[in-house]
Design a protein around this nucleic acid. Sequence first.
DNA 1: GATGGCACTCGGGACTTCAGAGTGCTAAGT
DNA 2: ACTTAGCACTCTGAAGTCCCGAGTGCCATC
Lengths: 366, 366
Amino acid sequence: MSEERRLAVLRAIVEDYVHTREPVGSRVLTERHGLGVSPATIRNDMAALEEAGYIAQPHTSAGRVPTDKGYRLFVDRLAEVRPLTAPQRRAIETFLSEAVDLDDILGRAGRLIAQLTGQVAVVQYPSLRLSGLRHLELVPVGGVRLLVVVITDTGRVEQRYLDVTGAADAEPTVASVESPAPDVAADHPGIPDEGSLGELRARLNAAAAGKRLSELPEAFGRVVAGVAPDLVPLARGIADLVVDTLGTQSEERIVLAGTANLARADMRFEHALSPVLEALEEQVVLLGLLTEMATDPPGGAGVGVRIGHENRLDGLTEASVVASGYGTDGDTVAILGSIGPTRMDYPGTIASVRAVARYLSRVLPN
Amino acid sequence: MSEERRLAVLRAIVEDYVHTREPVGSRVLTERHGLGVSPATIRNDMAALEEAGYIAQPHTSAGRVPTDKGYRLFVDRLAEVRPLTAPQRRAIETFLSEAVDLDDILGRAGRLIAQLTGQVAVVQYPSLRLSGLRHLELVPVGGVRLLVVVITDTGRVEQRYLDVTGAADAEPTVASVESPAPDVAADHPGIPDEGSLGELRARLNAAAAGKRLSELPEAFGRVVAGVAPDLVPLARGIADLVVDTLGTQSEERIVLAGTANLARADMRFEHALSPVLEALEEQVVLLGLLTEMATDPPGGAGVGVRIGHENRLDGLTEASVVASGYGTDGDTVAILGSIGPTRMDYPGTIASVRAVARYLSRVLPN
DNA sequence: GATGGCACTCGGGACTTCAGAGTGCTAAGT
DNA sequence: ACTTAGCACTCTGAAGTCCCGAGTGCCATC
């Protein structure tokens, strides 16, 4: 009863089950996979595997099905990394290289993973909190409002409107997109002339250059203090808005793609999939799971795999998550991954996720 | 056999069927709905309705089910507009007012409709082609590239990177988000100093102010001609990029939301839903359908309804589309809607779509 | 025109049956 | 000490059967 063959049997079971979606018995195992022994022998091995908890049988007289533990072993030691096909590689390259900005590239990455894996993709945005400020732009709009454009190290561009009628109140007005007066001259009381605005912009940029979020408030504070008195409220408004933008709001931005794949017949979960749906809608929880996986990757090679009960979420006990961090040279700034039934094509999914993550890491600005 | 009662019967059938998902027979009809006649009478009416093609029976001894034609009549003449509940209204207001920019607001609108209707929402972006240029911003990035930010009348902000090492080639380089040299001084050969850049920006802005796309190339042409010789390639590059951005790319941007609702048990389509999935993935076709509905709304009150076979798409013969244009004062710039099974809650869906469309129209910049 | 009565239809749930897949175990073979 | 053939046993799920009851259409009556 060689150890090797037993593992080979487990591998065969996993592969077959993933492929056929049916409990696999000893006979088909000998037929379809090239292990040169008789069904009876296999049965002995299977008994041992079941004893050890790697497989189970749904009911007495049916084939075996891998358990979470079985999948785990498979992923850790048995899965042969199957590189993507050349066309797939090319598809990734071309599709992602067509992206026009960060939003676009991450959206595309999600759709790509969803399509490659036939599952649900999840993409976390690079945390603004961790990224520095590259540039700040101020654009007067309609005379009474100022469009503040923030460009980060990671290439992310955020826009916020600042209402300057009462720019003194620090709390940025909820930047709704409502109609400003159409064509008011730019020298409205609230907005300074081009020159002052340009100077303000220059100062803020100089102060913020390369700084991390935590250093920003102080740097901005000095700028506000050093500016002409009538500009102080405006400057403070802008500073607060920028800090607010980088700090709170969008740290936890997460995007799903391919949720329609859930409806596809071939990926049905064992039991109900409504819990899965609910879990996916709990973005906070999902985010927690992802960041957890980022810090503590239980899988190998940069790609983390959580199988079934391993992710302690109720709704995802029948689901597995394959995720990888991405970001410039090992400096993980965010995570992306694929979620599917525990009975999924792990090698393929891992390959896809890794390929996309690598591409992103290579191509993201730093 | 009064005409009115027959219509009342049809209405009752539709409402009951939508509610219970089961063919409805004459008895329950008299019981659950307050028409004060006997089942036999109803049967006569039903026979007439069936004769006229408004209802059908799946098999001999089963209740009746509305046909597409029946739904049509229901929508056109029988549906009582059921206004949204106060909480719903409030939800729309608050959720949408939290949006920070156009992207965000449309994304939220989609998710909102998906959630209100429990179906798939589809949102078409305001066509850039139809919107004017409000502002153009130029931001040097990393010394060798220029971030061109385009702000349109509709509040949409588009960003493109322009590679200025060889800005002469008119075709904008595919603006990938790749790593530029980290911290090069801003006076790199390719990028002019702040002053020239500012002047260029000012000129371009002046030329473009309030112009439609069709008028832009000419206006920009004059600017390029009037600029310092060494700036000509750059100016031309920018001009082309802007025109390209507004013209081609994103005219046909469409976004789905709530596709996960397809997986929900309670919205199963009669037969397979894979054709529906495929139809939804054919964004071009979908876009065609939407624009068609925009120009020729067969429903009433600004909201168009396409039922089953009415939308000539193979995959959507069992689906209905409820859509409405939105845009400042009747000037429809785009469309949004909800897609679900023909057996859907039309009044509710219509109310939701209309409410969101109205909110958008009210709140969009003009 | 509305209604009660009635014979008729037929889908689908409940029940039964049965073949086949799969197992574990024992005993024999290498 | 494994491996293998044989065999009795278990159980699922497909197929078949039955029958209740919902629903209908039609006719005679009010």
